[in-house]
């Protein structure tokens, strides 16, 4: 393994690990919510993961615009990496929500507007990742996926406002600055958890962007002319130009 491809553990990774431990301690130590039992502790995973999904797709949107404006492939790497992480965290948010739903609503899935639209949002970005996989040439892939990264934001609007537009089973948005209905210790644990997940996102993004750079280097190396091949040493016979006519 060369030095360039070796995984380096940076300060951000250490901060991410420590903050996850902190978040876990806060989540376990937070008071029990009597109405929902222990299942309510899923709050400390469910809310941060869906927050990260929003953040990741918003970063994809901004990085896509920056790529089209600057044409620097670094922004395309950020957009692609962020979308990948967003897809993972959206999946975790949906699965966590289903487990929580089973505990509170007694069903894994219900045709709730927030649930359904979040699942559809997942498919938008699965499509985005599928597009990235079918185009090998880095510049073409970057430009086309940047367009989709921008259009994808259209889907975030109904997902976010779904709990307001429809009377759904899902509760309204957790963070409403003027109307926080949560006990202090639970709110503190939730905020620590959101902060920890955000640091984890930043650490994952850093590694994934580095990997994208390595993939680009590998593509460039594969596309570059190869070294000497059999037959290179053989040169065409010099017939000369003596002026003799056949």
């Amino acid at each position: 393994m060369s030095d360039a491809t070796r995984t380096r553990i940076g300060a951000l990774d250490i901060v991410a690990t420590v903050s996850v431990v902190f978040a876990l301690v806060f989540a376990i130590a937070s008071p029990r919510i009597e109405s929902q039992g222990e299942a309510a502790r899923l709050l400390f995973v469910h809310v941060p993961t869906i927050w990260l999904a929003y953040l990741a797709f918003a970063v994809t949107f901004v990085a896509s615009i920056l790529y089209l404006a600057t044409r620097r492939l670094r922004w395309d790497h950020v957009a692609g990496a962020s979308a990948e992480i967003g897809v993972v965290f959206t999946t975790v948010a949906i699965i966590g929500g289903m487990v929580w739903g089973k505990a509170t609503w007694n069903v894994y899935w219900t045709w709730d507007a927030r649930l359904t639209l979040t699942a559809i949002m997942l498919f938008v970005y699965i499509g985005y990742l599928a597009l990235r996989r079918v185009i090998a040439e880095p510049e073409a892939r970057a430009r086309r996926s940047a367009v989709l990264g921008i259009v994808g934001l259209v889907q975030l609007i109904p997902v976010h406002f779904s709990v307001t537009w429809w009377r759904t089973l899902h509760q309204t948005n957790t963070f409403r600055p003027r109307d926080i209905q949560m006990d202090g210790p639970i709110l503190a644990a939730l905020l620590v958890s959101v902060a920890a997940f955000t640091v984890v996102y930043a650490a994952l993004l850093r590694h994934r962007v580095r990997l994208e750079g390595l993939e680009l280097a590998a593509y460039a190396a594969a596309a570059a002319p190869v070294g000497p091949v059999a037959g290179d040493a053989v040169s065409a016979p010099n017939i000369g130009n003596s002026g003799a006519q056949p």
Partner: peptide, 23 residues
Amino acid sequence: SVAASTNAGPALVPLLVTPLAIP
């Protein structure tokens, strides 16, 4: 336009359009 000239174009377009058309 995004999926043009890719081998997966006809298969990819429905996946791209359908979820985005939900709003």
